[in-house]
Structure formats: structure tokens, C-alpha cells
């Protein structure tokens, strides 16, 4: 990086790109890819999700792979984010569930409560 100006320009660009993802009807799927999550099977979940996206021709979704969120006991976690909405957090997701929950949210705006973090009575 040559100068502060270059930095500001880059940060601006990066922010715009991230915000671009937040336009109406665009859904960001956040998946944690830490070793815990991988041990808990997140790779299969990711694959299932990608298959579902391809299969249903979904275009308004991006999958963001992040590090560990620290909530290991509930991995794999899948968080669906949409502008102006409360994020939906699914926990202990399996490939089977993954194939269903994403299209349901994207295409039908449905949330399967039993699979979300909210559905877990253990957290009461």
C-alpha cells in the first residue's frame, strides 16, 4: 500500500461491495468454517446448500464463509441475512436440513422454527 489515499479508496470500494450485497431481496448465507464447524460437518452442509442453489436456480444468494463464532456446541450454524430483517440462525444443521431451509427462505420466505436457535429449549 503506497499511501493513506490508496487505503481510503480501497476501504470505500470494499465497503460498497459488501453493502451491494445488502440490497433488497438479496440474501447472505453466513457459514462458519472453523475447525469445530468442519468437525461438526459443515463441509457437507455447504455442499448441500450449493447443490440446492444450483438445483433451484437461485440467483439472489451469496454464501459468506467466516471463521468460528464461538458457539461450538451448536455448530454447524447457518445464518440467513436479509436487509431489514432479523437474521435467522439455524443450528446443528445437517445436509438434509440444509437442502430444505435455504430454498424455503429464499423462495417462499419461510422459516422452519424447530431447527433454529430459537427453537432450542436448552437456551431458555
Amino acid at each position: 500500500m503506497a499511501s493513506m489515499q490508496a487505503y481510503y479508496a480501497l476501504r470505500e470500494r470494499a465497503l460498497n461491495r459488501l453493502q451491494g450485497l445488502e440490497k433488497e431481496d438479496f440474501i447472505t448465507v453466513e457459514i462458519h468454517m472453523g475447525i469445530c464447524s468442519q468437525a461438526a460437518g459443515v463441509l457437507d452442509v455447504l455442499k448441500a446448500m450449493e447443490e440446492a442453489i444450483a438445483h433451484k436456480n437461485i440467483s439472489n444468494v451469496t454464501i459468506a464463509k467466516t471463521g468460528c463464532a464461538g458457539f461450538c456446541a451448536y455448530e454447524p450454524l447457518v445464518i440467513l441475512k436479509k436487509k431489514g430483517r432479523r437474521p435467522v440462525t439455524y443450528c446443528r444443521v445437517t445436509p438434509e436440513k440444509a437442502r430444505v431451509l435455504l430454498p424455503e427462505y429464499v423462495l417462499k420466505d419461510r422459516i422452519i422454527e424447530a431447527w433454529t436457535l430459537n427453537g432450542k429449549d436448552v437456551l431458555l
Partner: peptide, 26 residues
């Protein structure tokens, strides 16, 4: 210490920068 962990794509330097990454160094 964990401010970005679980929020950004660790393999994208741009996401880190978008959240003021490397601004402290600058």
C-alpha cells in the same frame, strides 16, 4: 479480540479492510 471472527470471510482481505482493517497500521 474476536471482533471480526465469525463475521467476515477470513480469506478476504477486502472484508477485513471494509471493517477498518489495517487502518490502525496506516
Amino acid at each position: 479480540a474476536l471482533r471480526n471472527v465469525g463475521l467476515i470471510d477470513p480469506l478476504s482481505i477486502e472484508e477485513y479492510i471494509a471493517f477498518d482493517g489495517y487502518f490502525a497500521l496506516a
